[in-house]
C-alpha cells in the first residue's frame, strides 16, 4: 500500500492505496467522488476525464500514485459557465458522459488558449487559431456520447467561448 496525498477539488486528501489502483477508482471508490464516470476503463471513451493541474487526462489510464501531490479537479470541483450552457443547449441526454465532456471542454479551452494546434488546424505556426465548430469537434473527439448529443455539446462550448 502507498500513503499519498493529493489535492482534490481544493482540499488535501489522504489516500492509502495499492500502487495498481487507477486515479479513477481512487476518486470513485476511495474518495466517493462518483461524478467522474467509468465508461470503458481503457482510455477509449473519455467519460473519466478530469483535470490534473489544469490539464485534461483520462483518469482510468492514470495510477493514483503517479498523481501524488498533484492538483486534481473533478466535475464536483468545476465551476464553469459551460455547465449552464450544457443544460441550455441540451448537451447531454443520459448524463453519463457529461462530467467527462465538461472537464474535457475546460481542459481543451486551456490548450487552445496556449496555442496548441489540432489535426484540423491549417497553419500550425499561428498562435491565433480560431476555435471553429470543426476545431471543437476535432478537439472533443476523445469524448464519446452514445446518446448523440454532439450538436448540443458543440453549441454549449461555442456559447462558452463567446
Amino acid at each position: 500500500m502507498a500513503d499519498i496525498r493529493m489535492r482534490v477539488n481544493g482540499s488535501i486528501e489522504k489516500l492509502d492505496v495499492e500502487p495498481r489502483v487507477s486515479l479513477l477508482d481512487a476518486l470513485r471508490e476511495h474518495l466517493g467522488l462518483t461524478g467522474t464516470k467509468k465508461g470503458c476503463d481503457q482510455g477509449a471513451c473519455g467519460a473519466c476525464t478530469v483535470l490534473a493541474d489544469g490539464e485534461r487526462i483520462v483518469s482510468c489510464l492514470a495510477l493514483a500514485v503517479q498523481y501524488a501531490d498533484r492538483d486534481i479537479t473533478t466535475i464536483e470541483g468545476v465551476t464553469s459557465p459551460l455547465q449552464r450552457s450544457f443544460v441550455r443547449h441540451d448537451g447531454f441526454q443520459c448524463g453519463y458522459c457529461t462530467s467527462g465532456q465538461i472537464c474535457s471542454a475546460v481542459g481543451m479551452l486551456t490548450e487552445h488558449a496556449a496555442g496548441a494546434p489540432s489535426a484540423v488546424t491549417g497553419d500550425l505556426a499561428t498562435m491565433e487559431i480560431e476555435l471553429t465548430a470543426e476545431e471543437i469537434r476535432e478537439r472533443m473527439s476523445g469524448n464519446l456520447c452514445r446518446c448523440g448529443a454532439y450538436n448540443g455539446i458543440v453549441a454549449a462550448i461555442e456559447e462558452g467561448i463567446r
Partner: peptide, 21 residues
Amino acid sequence: IDRLDGVAKTTGAARFSAEYP
C-alpha cells in the same frame, strides 16, 4: 424547456447504479 435533471447531470451529483455508497 430545460431538463429538470440538468443541474444534477452537469455537476456530478446524479448517482448511477454503481455509485451508491
